[in-house]
Design a protein around this nucleic acid. Structure first.
Lengths: 302, 302
DNA sequence: TGAGTTTACGCTACACGTAACTATC
DNA sequence: GATAGTTACGTGTAGCGTAAACTCA
């Protein structure tokens, strides 16, 4: 088995015509070069260099080896370059999966920062919810999954139940607020207890949010009457604005929607959801992934 | 500094998807593989493999490295072969990959001649079809790949599409013939047009042959009813002999099968397939490879 | 429980550098 | 005698295999 290191030395010897000069060029001692060439000749089973007095000449086999060495060493340095680019964030692709309408501000901010700092990295974004997004993560279809959970959720609906072997990077804890039509009796109240809304028609969000809403209300002793349910946050806001009901929404989601005709109220016993980034342990050490996670955290801290 | 030995191991791991399987393939213990990969990841400074439960997956950097590895290792083996040949050992080893049941006469004839002329050269034979055989060629797992193509094939199924950087040595152009049961109405006709067999049940060969058969028939305005399809040429002949249908076969394949109970007919607008030998430019200059190619050509011209 | 991966440990082997020796001009 | 190459030797490191711990299906 020919070793690349030997080829590097052979090439230097061929270029300089001397072991000593090659040693100087390679930054090692001259006996080291001598030994390497001896080892190479032994592993190929044929002489490569002709030591005629003081000068060094190549045999035909030596010539052949030097000829091949060029391509092989070029391939090796190309491989090193490419890996170094990936390791040094001059290249790299990160596939991000986010829950729908979840991070209208978070993801763009993070990606803008990442692009500014490392123009070579490319990030793609797809929308999916756990457990689908976690499947994608495990299946190699993405590197980072954004998800959220309700810290007090019952174990059987908590998606975090399956996250034991994942790297979970908490990004932010988002307060939930109640949104009511602007002419609602509580519109000016500032804060409200969930129990005060027992008789209201509700507009719910995604299935998990809906389930969570029901849990919270039942803890307050009533079952909410849910007239509408949609994944689409702007649509929820529109429905509230049209006076069709009340809703709970993550504060962050409210910030980036023009909430015409509505008023928002703090919920008295504060309810929060936690937004986290998930990845695999090995992927967390991939530079482009680590950088993206850092940027997401940075964007969340803003 | 990336070492070639590491690349060899990485490639085996990528190909098998497991450290244990790679170790078996490489003839070493599994912890050795584990250590080599650890060392490679350390020397590149970035994770290359994702250990997710039981399966091994490559990171982007790992993919890049495997991509480069093919060329580097092919270069190394080419260099080794050339030096070995120049050393006068004539212990040149040529690994030949042929499409299945393709060259029952061609390969044996060529190898017999080669052995007579150069007793030192050893040739091994494995069966695989393009694109697998071409992958083996590029990956350094063989020196010569035998393949065939239909000159009129549509570009998207023509394997020659990926042969731009290979040395393509045409060996022979093989006429296709139609084989029918001996009591078939056309058994004595001598020649036949494909269109006359529109209503027959067909027995097809390998997937690519089958695709080609459908193409040819559709050019004649009908879709063949294919009742059986098998890679095994003697089996095809047996099915025809049993009266279960008609088939098209390469003339060479018919010659070396006892075609009991069948009759063969020339196809009126002649259809041919082209059998070629593929190798890499560097390998084409290795004496043992060159000699094998020459012998193949000679055997085909016979 | 079983297959697969990692970790720990002892061993060997290899490669380097220093230093002494040899050979050529 | 000076420059270049080889040989000899001590040291450090790196890789392997065996064996044991660990993990996921």
């Amino acid at each position: 088995m020919i070793e690349a290191r030997h080829l590097r030395v052979l090439r230097a010897v061929a270029a300089t015509g001397s072991f000593s000069a090659a040693a100087r060029e390679l930054g090692c001692t001259q006996p080291a070069v001598s030994q390497q060439m001896k080892a190479l000749e032994q592993s190929t089973g044929t002489p490569l260099l002709i030591r005629t007095g003081r000068e060094m000449r190549l045999t035909e086999a030596g010539e052949a080896l030097v000829r091949h060495a060029a391509g092989i060493l070029a391939g090796l340095t190309a491989a090193e370059e490419e890996v170094a680019a990936l390791a040094g964030l001059r290249a790299g692709r990160v596939r991000l999966v986010s829950f729908p309408s979840g991070s209208s501000t978070l993801v763009p901010t993070a990606l803008a920062g990442l692009r500014a700092a490392h123009p070579g990295t490319r990030v793609s974004l797809v929308e999916a919810e756990p457990p689908r997004s976690v499947e994608m993560l495990r299946g190699g279809d993405c590197e980072i999954a954004l998800a959220f959970r309700y810290p007090q959720a019952a174990a059987d609906v908590d998606p975090a139940a399956g996250w034991d072997d994942l790297v979970v990077r908490p990004l932010l804890r988002d307060r939930l607020v109640v949104m009511v039509p602007h002419d609602h009796r509580l519109a000016g109240a500032g804060t409200v207890g969930i129990g005060e809304l027992a008789e209201e028609p509700w507009i719910a969000g995604c299935p998990r949010c809906r389930r969570h809403l029901v849990e919270v209300c039942e803890a307050e002793g009533f079952t909410p009457r849910i007239d509408f349910a949609t994944d689409d946050y702007p649509a929820v806001v529109g429905l509230v604005g049209a006076g069709l009901g009340v809703a709970v929404l993550p504060e962050l989601a409210v910030e980036c929607v023009r909430a015409k005709g509505t008023a928002t109220l703090e919920v008295k016993p504060a309810v929060r959801r936690e937004v986290v980034a998930l990845t695999l342990p090995d992927l967390a050490r991939v530079p482009a992934v680590a950088a993206t996670l850092d940027r997401l955290e940075l964007a969340a801290r803003r």
